[in-house]
Nucleic acid binder design. Structure first.
Length: 586
DNA sequence: GCCGTTTTCGGCCCGACTGTTTTCAGTCG
């Protein structure tokens, strides 16, 4: 319901913008965003508190509130249908093409009857666009390329695939030794699970002349990986790289560095809210700084900029305008879990079942990361494709771990390898390996690896039943999604959280870049229920241990503190969170 | 159409860049 309404509202905003209506598009977009971010279904809010309750939602007043009511009661919105009758285009698709916005969409519809991406592409390729008022040859070519890009990239890229590339390009820029500083900003700095493009921010030293800057821009624009230059000015360069993602390079003087970093880190929603706040204080905020009249009062330093706005410094991962500004104003921001906090990883697959490396190699790699422990969570017998271990094989593997631990103790002491497994949750919620085998382990993870397409209530019951098993401590990748490949299975996440609390089961934040499951939203929900979580990599190769950074980013985006994440504790403390070691009443 | 430590009316984020113009509208982030 929320997502459907949000989509309609975005369309209304575009249609109003096309009609050159002032301010209302902004209001509708805000309402759309607000609905999209809402934790509860708006229909249930309405069922509980009626129109009044709906109007409590930020960005929704009486007028939009009534439209929502109409949608809930009648399944349609008359106002929307009227607009759509007059402007019957695929708005979401058309405005997603680079360079095409609401006004051009309307104009092209009126002149050429263009209603869809296919129409647009045909018109551009047929040469029917160049020559229209406001359009030339270049506009036409840009439309063709914009449509191509859209087809090719289908939008966003995974954090895990973009971050390494961004770092590589960043190093190349730094090697020019022209800029004082190079930073990655944008959604990458915010740690979002998917990334639209890479934003580089460069600080030009005072001594740099315009030719030097131009030389740096030329270098960047002519790198072999650059396929197209979208735009190039004195301070901004925008290109598309091979692989289909866009990169922006912006150049700022050092006195504006903090303001620029803040601005280009976003999110857009956070920035709008921040500027509004500045305005309310009689100030003006832009990428060049915070100004009182013409006087620059903060700009070089990001932290100072927030302070001058009466706010504590807000970590980039929180900047989504989801309450962080209010929290910063009241000094109620969380102290986010950080990279150095984690003491180990409990979800590593060894070559006993599907993994690439020996247990000894995994342990060595974990020690190299300064971990205090590593958990071997091999698959159990249901997963034949991964050579899942049966009860007997698990016993043999446990013996090897015991042996390795004894050896290690003689050497350095503290580090410990833990005996675990990642068992399979069968369709009925039972576990594919015996309770006896599970009880001999230090910990047990269970996850869904089969029969994904069940109804919501059935799937929820399935997972809850697994959580009720006293030998299952952790649920791996709780929603089962694969980014850009497959949506998660349908679950009632509230019910999962309640069951996790009631049974003392830990939910996993799977850090694998294709999963990131739980995601930021789930993490925040789980926290509010008091659920404990663990950041695991699901490593099938020792190189995957580095994926932990992506899981940490999601945990931070979900407002998690070290105290909420059980592997931020030493093993002896972590033990006490495991169900098997708790003396439960009842 | 929304919203309010100042406001129930009068504001609403800001600047760069492009492509087309010949002073600017549209788009983007």
């Amino acid at each position: 319901m929320n997502k459907n309404l949000a989509k309609i509202f975005y369309e209304i905003a575009d249609m109003l913008a096309a009609d050159k209506v002032e301010f209302k598009p902004f209001a509708w977009r805000k309402a759309a965003q607000s609905l999209g971010d809402l934790e509860q279904d708006v229909a249930s809010i309405y069922a509980r508190g009626g129109l009044k309750a709906v109007e409590e939602i930020p960005g929704i007043g009486n007028s939009i509130g009534k439209k929502i009511e109409e949608y809930i009661l009648k399944g349609r919105i008359g106002y929307y249908q009227e607009l759509k009758r007059r402007l019957p285009m695929d708005w979401e698709d058309l405005v997603s093409v680079q360079g095409i916005g609401p006004k051009k969409t309307k104009f092209l519809f009126q002149k050429l009857g263009i209603k869809s991406i296919a129409d647009l592409e045909a018109a551009a390729r047929g040469g029917r666009i160049a020559g229209l008022p406001g359009f030339g040859k270049k506009s036409e070519q840009n439309i063709i390329e914009g449509v191509e890009f859209r087809k090719k990239s289908r939008g966003r890229f995974l954090l895990g695939e973009i971050l390494p590339q961004a770092r590589m390009f960043g190093v190349r820029l730094a090697d020019l030794r022209i800029f004082e500083k190079i930073d990655i900003a944008g959604s990458l700095r915010r740690g979002k699970e998917t990334i639209g493009d890479i934003d580089f921010l460069a600080v030009a030293p005072k001594t740099a002349d315009v030719f030097e800057i131009a030389r740096a821009m030329d270098f960047f624009a002519s790198m072999p990986e650059v396929e197209k230059i979208w735009g190039k000015g004195d301070t901004k360069l925008s290109v598309r790289a091979e692989g289909g993602f866009n990169m922006d390079l912006r150049i700022l003087p050092s006195e504006s560095y903090g303001a620029g970093l803040q601005y280009f880190t976003g999110s857009k929603e956070h920035n709008i809210a921040l500027r509004r706040r500045a305005q309310e204080m009689g100030l003006k905020l832009s990428e060049y700084g915070l100004f009182s009249g013409d006087e620059l009062i903060a700009g070089a330093n990001e932290k100072e900029l927030y302070e001058k706005l009466g706010l504590r410094f807000i970590e980039p991962e929180l900047r989504e305008n989801l309450g962080e500004i209010e929290a910063a104003a009241k000094d109620k921001l969380p102290v986010l879990v950080a990279a150095g906090d984690l003491k180990g990883d409990l979800h590593c697959h060894s070559n006993w079942a599907g993994g690439d490396n020996s247990i000894a190699a995994i342990a060595a790699a974990a020690r190299a990361m300064d971990y205090e422990y590593v958990g071997i969570a091999d698959h159990t017998k249901f997963l034949k494709i991964e050579n899942g271990l049966d009860e007997a094989a698990l016993v043999r593997r446990n013996r090897e771990i015991d042996k390795l631990n004894k050896l290690a103790q003689k050497q350095a002491g503290e580090f410990v390898i833990l005996k675990g497994c990642e068992a399979n949750i069968m369709s009925d919620g039972s576990i594919d390996i015996s309770d006896m085998a599970l009880s001999e382990l230090d910990f047990a993870i269970a996850g869904v690896h089969s029969n994904f397409k069940m109804g919501k209530s059935q799937m929820t019951r399935r997972i809850v039943r697994a959580m009720e098993n006293p030998h299952i401590d952790i649920i791996s990748h709780p929603t089962g999604r694969l980014l850009k490949k497959r949506p998660g299975y349908e679950i009632d996440f509230e019910a999962i959280c309640e069951a996790a609390c009631a049974t003392g089961t830990i939910l996993e934040i799977n850090a694998h870049p294709d999963r990131l499951d739980l995601n930021d939203w789930h993490i925040r929900r789980a926290l509010s229920c008091g659920v404990k979580m663990i950041i695991n990599t699901d490593a099938h190769n020792i190189n995957h241990l580095r994926f932990v950074q992506f899981g940490i980013a999601q945990a931070r985006r979900g407002w998690a503190e070290a105290k909420d994440i059980v592997n931020a504790y030493p093993w002896q403390k972590l033990r006490s969170f495991l169900k098997r070691n708790q003396k439960r009443v009842n």
